[in-house]
Simulated assay, not measured.
Amino acid sequence: MVATPTYDATRDRVEAYFDRTATKTWERLTSDAPVSGVRRTVRAGRDRMRALMLSRLPKDLSGRRVLDAGCGTGAMTEVLAARGAEVVAIDISPQLIDIAAKRLPEDLVPRVTFQSGDMLSANLGAFDHVMAMDSMIYYTAPDLGRALAGLSERCPHIVFTVAPRTPFLMAFFGLGKLFPRADRSPVMIPHAPKRISEKLLINQCDRTLLKLEQVTSGFYISSCLEMRA
């Protein structure tokens, strides 16, 4: 777990946003229900990113323990379990966990442990793979570095996403700072892979950080990175 004032404050904002403000929005966005044109692009982008991340794992995950860090409504969890993995699906939002548990096909239930709480908790144990799709995008570079360093002590393979430092997202990030903190949702913090490597002291540990691909679909912009031992 990352114990810093900035991490704790961001985690609390993320929990409040997803558990009190945006639950219904995310439930609809991650379903087959009709949505607006803008949200369709976001849905398509998320589908592409999920497929990209899953392509980094073996088709057969039997006997492997996988952490779905920030599982949301469970789309990634379902695929991991269907491939045979023992999945720990955790999210900061209890309401999203409830939705994920209800959506999971009955035959996959024995393979999944749902839990609400901090995705970085050491109490979750060790894993063969960690998947963190759009769950680390709100954290500063120092907190992100600490998070990845802590996870790497318990897992040799981490696939995660960050908001890239594009002109659009940098402008959006700057604009978000203009609004009172209480009146805005958590803001994505754009990162460059080089900066993340510096915070991880990547050259001083047995880890390789790779930038895989950037997915852009309307208002959905996210970069997939992979860290291996």
Rank of each mutant, 00 (worst) to 15 (best):
G37M: 08
V38S: 15
R39H: 14
R39G: 00
R39V: 00
R40H: 13
R43K: 13
D47H: 01
R48M: 10
M49R: 07
R50Q: 10
R50V: 00
R50T: 06
R50N: 08
A51E: 14
M53C: 10
L54P: 03
L54W: 00
L54F: 01
S55T: 01
S55P: 01
R56I: 00
L57R: 02
L57P: 02
P58T: 06
P58A: 07
P58Q: 05
P58N: 05
K59L: 13
K59P: 00
D60Y: 03
D60P: 02
D60T: 04
S62T: 13
G63Y: 13
R64C: 12
R65P: 04
R65I: 03
R65D: 07
R65H: 11
V66T: 11
L67N: 06
A69E: 01
G70T: 07
C71F: 04
G72P: 11
G72F: 08
G72V: 11
T73L: 05
A75F: 07
T77A: 10
V79Y: 02
A81I: 13
A81M: 12
A81L: 12
R83F: 11
G84L: 11
A85N: 03
A85Y: 03
A85D: 04
A85G: 04
E86G: 05
E86K: 15
E86Y: 03
V87M: 10
V88P: 00
I90P: 13
I90L: 12
I90V: 15
D91S: 11
D91L: 12
P94W: 10
Q95I: 01
L96V: 02
L96G: 01
I97P: 01
I99D: 09
I99W: 07
A101Q: 15
K102E: 15
R103C: 06
L104Q: 10
L104V: 09
L104F: 10
P105G: 08
P105R: 08
V109P: 02
V109Q: 14
R111M: 10
V112L: 11
V112R: 05
V112P: 09
